[in-house]
C-alpha cells in the first residue's frame, strides 16, 4: 500500500480476540444463569419473591446482555451500526402497538431479525440486547428480557447463515424453532422477576394453565411455548418478505449477505433484474 495514511490496514488480531472473549463470557453468563435458575431451589420465590432467584435472574441475564453488547458493538462496521437504531424503532413501535391490542403476540423482534439476516448472528444478538436496553427507557419491564432478545437475534443470524432464508417456506420454520428456545429462556424472567406476564392476552393463557394446577414457571413456560413460536414464525416470514422486496443493490452491500449467499433464492425470483 503506497499511502498507509489514507488507506486502512487489515484489522488487528489481538483486539478481535479480546472482543470474542467478551462475547463468550456474555453467552456463558446467560447460560449459567438459566441453568442456575432451573436447578436451584426455586421454592424461595414464594414468600414475597424473596429475591435470591430474582436478583440472580436479573443480574446474570443483564450482565450477559451487557457483555454481549460491549463485545460485539465495536466490531460492527458502521453500515451495520446505523441500522441498529432503525431496527430498534421498528421493534419498539410494533411492540408497543401489539402490546396495546391485547393479543398474545409480541411482534417486537422484526427489526432484530432483519439486522440478523443482513449482518449476521453477532449483529443480531447485539441488536436484540440493545433493543431491550433502549426500549426500557419508555418501558422498564422489557429490560430483564434482554438475554432472550439477544438469543432471538443470534438464532435468526444462524438461520440466515445456513440458508434458511433462501426458501420462503423455511423462514417461518426457523422462526418457530427460534421461538421455542427463546420462550423457554425468557419464561424464568417472567416467573421469577415479575411473577406473571405483562400482557392481558398472555396473562389469560397463563391463568388457564394455573387453573389446571400447573406451577407458575410451568404455566408461563407453556404459555411461552404457545405464543413465542407462532409469533417468531410470523416475524421471520415478514422479514423474509421484506428482504426479498429490497433492491439487490441494497442487500448486496452487506458482506454477510454476499459471503453466505443469504438470499440466493432472489435470483430465481427476478432473473431479469
Amino acid at each position: 500500500m503506497s499511502q498507509p495514511s489514507r488507506t486502512l490496514p487489515a484489522p488487528g488480531q489481538a483486539a478481535v480476540r479480546n472482543r470474542r472473549l467478551l462475547e463468550i463470557l456474555g453467552a456463558v453468563s446467560i447460560a449459567a444463569t438459566f441453568i442456575f435458575l432451573v436447578l436451584t431451589q426455586p421454592a424461595d420465590i414464594t414468600n414475597g419473591l424473596a429475591g435470591g432467584s430474582t436478583l440472580v435472574a436479573l443480574g446474570g441475564f443483564l450482565l450477559g446482555a451487557i457483555l454481549l453488547i460491549v463485545g460485539v458493538l465495536p466490531t460492527l462496521p458502521t453500515s451495520t451500526l446505523v441500522l441498529i437504531p432503525v431496527a430498534l424503532v421498528l421493534n419498539i413501535a410494533l411492540g408497543q402497538i401489539m402490546g396495546s391490542t391485547g393479543l398474545p403476540f409480541y411482534f417486537d423482534a422484526i427489526g432484530t431479525v432483519l439486522i440478523a439476516v443482513l449482518a449476521g448472528p453477532a449483529a443480531g444478538a447485539a441488536t436484540g440486547a440493545l433493543s431491550s436496553v433502549v426500549w426500557s427507557f419508555i418501558n422498564p419491564t422489557v429490560l430483564p428480557f434482554a438475554a432472550g432478545a439477544a438469543l432471538i437475534g443470534f438464532l435468526a443470524g444462524l438461520a440466515a447463515r445456513y440458508g434458511l432464508f433462501r426458501r420462503f417456506y423455511l423462514a417461518p420454520v426457523a422462526g418457530f424453532v427460534t421461538g421455542i428456545l427463546a420462550g423457554v429462556v425468557s419464561a424464568p424472567i417472567a416467573a421469577f422477576v415479575f411473577g406473571g406476564t405483562s400482557g392481558v392476552g398472555t396473562g389469560a393463557i397463563v391463568s388457564a394453565f394455573r387453573a389446571m394446577g400447573d406451577t407458575l414457571l410451568a404455566a408461563i413456560t407453556k404459555q411461552a411455548l404457545i405464543s413465542d413460536p407462532m409469533d417468531k414464525a410470523i416475524v421471520f416470514a415478514v422479514v423474509a418478505m421484506l428482504a426479498y422486496a429490497l433492491p439487490r443493490r441494497t442487500t448486496l452491500q452487506f458482506a454477510f449477505v454476499r459471503r453466505f449467499n443469504v438470499l440466493a433464492g432472489k435470483k430465481q425470483d427476478a432473473p431479469d433484474a
Binding site: 426455586p42 420465590i45 407458575l216 414457571l217
Partner: peptide, 10 residues
C-alpha cells in the same frame, strides 16, 4: 409466608 412447591417439576 406460604411456600410455593414443585417449581422444578417441569
Amino acid at each position: 409466608g406460604p411456600q410455593l412447591q414443585g417449581f422444578a417439576m417441569l
